[in-house]
Lab assay of single mutants.
Amino acid sequence: RKEMTAACTPRRRIINLTSVLSLQEEINEQGHEVLREMLHNHSFVGCVNPQWALAQHQTKLYLLNTTKLSEELFYQILIYDFANFGVLRLSEPAPLFDLAMLALDSPESGWTEEDGPKEGLAEYIVEFLKKKAEMLADYFSLEIDEEGNLIGLPLLIDNYVPPLEGLPIFILRLATEVNWDEEKECFESLSKECAMFYSIRKQYISEESTLSGQQSEVPGSIPNSWKWTVEHIVYKALRSHILPPKHFTEDGNILQLANLPDLYKVFERC
């Protein structure tokens, strides 16, 4: 597991931080080997919608929660590849102030007048994250320049770009939802926020969305749709870069829909 690298990086740093090793061990302890084997050997059937997909393993048909699986995938990559990410360069710098204002204007932020003026909160978020810029760049390849612009994001899987519609809320939550006081809790909560931002979430995906850094293989055609990215990038990574937690067998994120021999018997009677 320590050699797990989802995106190509030129050289690998050895990380011996106790906090990170502890988080890696927790993933191992909570892992479910049968689910790992199923995901490793599954045959992708198709997307139901951005949140759900169908896959077959041996004779069984499964309904998989793409949102939760991708979130767990990105969390584990962030923990196992800690401080070893490439950088996704933004085509132009994104001012943190503008991103924070967009987030505060969104109902998702939960902002009320009692929280104070949005401009003041946005300025605080910019200054707060600028103070964390060195650590964010060093460990997470999340790059913020001296003017308070976001200029780079971590490359977690080759050819995958997170849904940038979720970027404003991500920046807001970096400042408000991460435990910045304790090292282990900081790395864990920061990785979880980043994983949620990178995950496939239906509120940020339309039929026209593209999450891939590449064009489709047909010359002159439109960019790959999110469905292509889910199948050929995300579920491909799920084959080798995730140890599913045991609770996925109990919380409805992986559901067995049918045993195909039983279905064949039904059709034979028709």
Results as ranks from 00 to 15, higher is better:
R1A: 15
R1K: 12
R1C: 15
R1Y: 10
K2N: 12
K2M: 12
K2V: 13
K2A: 10
E3N: 11
E3F: 12
M4H: 06
M4G: 05
M4E: 09
A6H: 05
A7F: 06
A7P: 05
T9K: 08
T9W: 06
T9C: 09
T9L: 14
T9V: 14
P10K: 02
R11G: 07
R12Q: 13
I14S: 13
I14K: 12
N16K: 10
L17M: 06
T18Q: 07
T18E: 13
S19D: 03
V20N: 03
V20R: 03
L21N: 08
L23V: 03
L23F: 04
Q24K: 07
E25L: 10
E26M: 13
E26N: 14
I27C: 14
I27Q: 01
E29P: 02
E29L: 12
E29C: 07
E29N: 11
E29I: 08
Q30K: 10
G31P: 02
H32W: 07
E33S: 12
V34I: 11
L35M: 13
R36F: 05
R36P: 00
E37V: 09
E37G: 07
E37P: 02
L39G: 01
L39Y: 01
L39Q: 00
N41M: 13
N41G: 15
H42W: 03
H42F: 10
H42N: 05
S43M: 08
S43C: 11
F44M: 04
V45E: 04
V45D: 01
V45C: 10
C47H: 13
C47D: 02
N49R: 02
N49K: 04
P50H: 14
P50F: 07
P50S: 14
P50L: 06
Q51E: 12
Q51M: 15
W52Q: 02
W52H: 04
A53F: 00
L54F: 04
L54Y: 04
L54K: 00
A55Y: 01
A55S: 12
Q56K: 15
H57N: 08
T59S: 15
K60F: 15
L61Q: 04
Y62E: 00
L63G: 04
L63V: 04
L64E: 00
L64C: 10
N65T: 01
N65S: 11
T66C: 00
T67K: 03
K68N: 08
L69C: 03
L69A: 02
E72H: 13
Y75P: 00
Q76M: 02
Q76D: 00
I77W: 01
I79C: 08
I79K: 00
Y80S: 07
Y80M: 14
A83C: 04
F85C: 06
V87Q: 07
L88F: 10
L88E: 05
L88W: 12
R89G: 12
L90S: 03
L90C: 05
S91F: 12
S91T: 15
E92M: 08
E92R: 06
P95M: 11
L96E: 00
F97V: 09
D98F: 05
A100M: 09
M101I: 12
A103G: 10
A103T: 04
A103D: 01
L104D: 00
S106K: 14
E108D: 14
E108M: 12
E108F: 07
G110K: 13
W111R: 07
T112S: 13
E113W: 08
E113T: 08
D115A: 08
G116E: 13
G116P: 07
G116C: 06
P117R: 08
K118Q: 12
K118L: 05
K118R: 09
E119R: 09
G120L: 09
G120P: 07
G120F: 10
G120I: 14
G120M: 09
G120K: 07
E123L: 09
E123K: 10
Y124M: 15
I125L: 08
E127N: 10
F128G: 10
F128P: 03
F128R: 07
L129T: 03
K130S: 11
K131E: 11
K132W: 10
F140I: 05
F140Y: 10
S141D: 00
S141L: 03
S141R: 08
E143F: 10
E143V: 11
E143P: 06
I144M: 11
I144P: 02
I144T: 03
I144C: 03
E146C: 07
E147L: 09
E147T: 11
G148E: 09
N149Q: 12
L150C: 05
G152I: 03
L153E: 01
P154E: 00
P154Q: 01
L156I: 06
L156T: 03
Y160R: 00
Y160I: 01
V161M: 14
P162V: 00
P163V: 09
P163F: 06
L164C: 06
E165T: 12
E165A: 10
E165W: 05
G166A: 14
G166V: 01
G166F: 00
G166H: 03
P168C: 04
P168A: 10
P168S: 09
I169P: 11
L172R: 06
A175Y: 14
T176F: 13
E177N: 07
V178M: 03
N179H: 11
D181R: 09
D181W: 15
E182T: 10
E182R: 10
E183K: 03
E185M: 11
E188M: 12
E188G: 09
L190F: 14
K192T: 07
E193S: 04
C194L: 13
C194N: 00
M196D: 04
M196A: 08
M196V: 12
M196E: 12
F197Y: 05
F197M: 07
Y198K: 01
Y198P: 00
I200F: 13
R201C: 01
R201F: 01
R201G: 04
R201L: 02
Q203K: 14
Y204K: 03
Y204M: 06
Y204P: 04
Y204G: 03
I205F: 11
I205D: 03
I205T: 06
I205A: 05
S206N: 13
T210L: 07
S212T: 13
Q214G: 10
V218K: 12
P219V: 13
P219M: 10
G220N: 14
G220K: 12
P223T: 15
W226G: 00
K227Q: 05
W228R: 11
T229G: 08
T229E: 07
V230Q: 02
E231Y: 01
H232F: 08
I233Q: 11
I233T: 12
V234F: 04
Y235A: 00
K236S: 08
A237Y: 06
A237N: 08
L238W: 02
L238H: 01
L238E: 00
R239Y: 00
R239E: 02
S240G: 11
S240A: 13
S240I: 12
H241E: 06
L243H: 10
L243K: 12
L243D: 11
L243Y: 13
L243I: 08
P244M: 01
K246E: 14
K246W: 09
K246N: 12
H247V: 11
H247R: 13
F248S: 03
F248D: 01
T249A: 14
E250F: 07
D251P: 04
G252S: 15
G252L: 04
N253L: 13
N259W: 04
N259M: 06
N259C: 10
L260C: 08
D262T: 08
D262C: 08
F267Y: 14
C270N: 15
C270W: 09
